[in-house]
């Protein structure tokens, strides 16, 4: 229960910081010369730290509720039995982190170029702060509904195995396994190729096309990679022939959490780099600084995605092929 209470506390903190960003004028604009600038960057950093630590505590809290949820065998069972808002909160963590990163990147871009905080930064931060506020509110509400279901609306009985064990019900991940494998390798090659081209730092009209390609291939990679890992690799990594549950994979395979973090950060770098490139193309005065920043983000994305793939491949190699 301690994890649950800590998770609720972090949601509360996130709500307070996000509300402060919206209300205290940081979003509406403040003269950087009067000290509002550093406060703004601190607010963005606080939101990012809260999203990461809050995400970890959220899953630890859900894991602590497994024993109290009828029929649940892992975090997935709790998510199935609890209110749908629990799933929205899950999706909210990466969204808040990407928006906070986009806000920070735009802020740094302008300040490195010697400009005061512009309307673009404030607009990005306004969206980010509002999303963070809504996310924190949803998190608090979801915990409340899970811990205290309204009278007459007890938790539904969960059953993990009927969803993830092929012998019982099959799964979309397995059904699409063969096609998804080709999709994964194609997307990975295209993403790495585009990022390698962008990481060389040369300017020109081709950069826009390369960023478009990187975003597209990274998007398809984000869809294909979980499908293939769950359909083909997870059962072998866990030693369970029919089990395709992502939460069990994260709990049982020590290589899975760092691989998810590395891949997630790598894909976020693609999103941030593309955003910076867009800002640079709209604001010619920032273009030189934008090229420098997006080159760094492309390199970071390239190495992070490569590290995630290398980590999983090395784990499979070390563990041996059969379960």
């Amino acid at each position: 229960m301690a994890f649950v209470q800590l998770s609720r506390f972090l949601f509360l903190l996130q709500a307070v910081v996000a509300a402060a960003l919206v209300a205290a004028g940081a979003v509406r604009g403040r003269d950087p010369a009067r000290g509002g600038s550093l406060l703004l960057l601190g607010g963005i950093g606080a939101i990012a730290v809260l999203a990461v630590s809050g995400g970890v505590l959220y899953y630890l809290g859900l894991a602590a509720r497994v024993g109290f949820t009828p029929g649940a065998m892992c975090v997935f069972g709790v998510l199935r039995a609890g209110p749908p808002a629990l799933r929205w909160v899950e999706a909210g963590f990466p969204a808040v982190l990407v928006l906070a990163g986009a806000g920070a990147a735009t802020y740094l871009l302008e300040h490195r170029a010697g400009d005061p905080t512009s309307r673009t930064v404030r607009a990005v931060l306004a969206v980010g702060a509002l999303v963070a506020l809504a996310h924190a509110g949803t998190g608090l509400w979801a915990w409340q509904r899970l811990l205290n279901p309204p009278p007459g609306q007890a938790l539904s009985v969960s059953c993990c195995t009927t969803v993830f064990d092929v012998a019982e019900a099959g799964s979309a991940a397995v059904a699409g396994g063969g096609f998804a494998a080709w999709w994964l390798w194609g997307s990975l090659a295209a993403t790495l190729g585009c990022l390698a081209g962008l990481g060389r730092g040369r300017g020109g009209a081709g950069r826009g096309l390369l960023w478009g390609g990187a975003v597209l291939s990274a998007g398809t990679l984000a869809v294909a990679a979980p499908a293939v890992v769950l359909a083909r690799w997870a059962p072998r990594m866990m030693g369970l022939i029919d089990h395709h549950c992502p939460y069990c994979l994260l709990q049982r395979v020590p290589a899975a959490p760092p691989a998810v973090v590395l891949a997630g950060l790598g894909l976020a770098c693609v999103a941030w780099g593309a955003w910076v490139a867009l800002v640079g193309s709209v604001r010619p005065d920032l273009r030189a600084e934008a090229v420098r920043m997006e080159t760094g983000l492309a390199r970071a994305g390239l190495w992070l995605v490569l590290s995630a793939a290398g980590l999983l491949a090395a784990y499979a190699l070390g563990r041996g092929s059969g379960p």
Binding site: V253, P254, A255, P258, A259, L262, W303, L304, L306, S307, A308, G310, L311, L312, A313, A314, Y315, A316, L317, G318, R319, G320
Partner: peptide
């Protein structure tokens, strides 16, 4: 970072064999 990730993956893989 890449080498550390590969070393970690291989090490934990060997441990879980």
């Amino acid at each position: 970072v890449f080498l550390a990730a590969v070393a970690f993956g291989f090490g934990t893989g060997l441990r879980d064999r």
